[in-house]
Amino acid sequence: MEATQELLFKIADDALIMGHTDSTWTGLGPTLEEDIAFSSMSQDKIGHAWNLYQMLHDKFGLADADTLGFKREEKEYKCSHLTEVPTQDYAYALVRQFFFDHGQFMRFSALKNSSIEWLADFSRKVTSEIKYHTLHGDTWLKKLGAQGNEESKARMQSAINEVFPLALGYFEEGPREAELIEKNIFIGEKALQEAWLEKVGDLVAQYGLTLPEGNTVDPSLGGRNGYHTEHLQPLLAEMTEVTASDPEATW
């Protein structure tokens, strides 16, 4: 039971915080078309988080989705560092979206075979949505990588170098990993990371860019255990600014 909750929380928190971080681009995208595409993806992510918190409420009798999403202590969030970092650099935002959504796609693809039926059902639904997100990332990496100019290639490459350690942290194991694997609820982070590395490594190479050598990079760890970057606390403060102003109220 607790292992499943832990799994759902980390996926939900990732989706919420990534959606939140990405939503800051709404109205500020490089073209109107891209603005719409990016904010639509952040909407999907926040929607996934909402669904997952709702499941935690329905299946385990925890608090309602708004409380779980917006009213926990920083330490209780289990999102990866990858989702927490604010950016004003669109190359960074695109590379992160590419890494994150390939991760999400493979995670939910694996969960389609979960021994928990309702989680498998949900995963089937969301993979078809996230498939479009991965295509978005692929298209942009290609456009600004292999098909881009020298400047865009250089910017994308430096974003890859910067984001990669955070992306590896996305695969940090949680405390109850072994139980999830044993009960066939989830294949586990190690297997997921292996498949992901192969996939994004291939794609990045196709797009004329390179992935840093895995063994030369220190993954940014801690998020899955409640240890976050300095960015999460202010992010949560902003997210809950309105609700905190009158805790009794419904909005």
Partner: peptide, 29 residues
């Protein structure tokens, strides 16, 4: 309105606001 997306006080309001702001950009287009 866009500056309030990150501060919208519930899932329902947040989703509605992002969708709305996105619509407005689409209207511009």
């Amino acid at each position: 309105e866009g500056t309030w997306i990150t501060r919208a006080p519930s899932f329902k309001r947040k989703m509605a606001l992002i969708a709305k702001v996105q619509d407005e950009i689409g209207h511009g287009q």
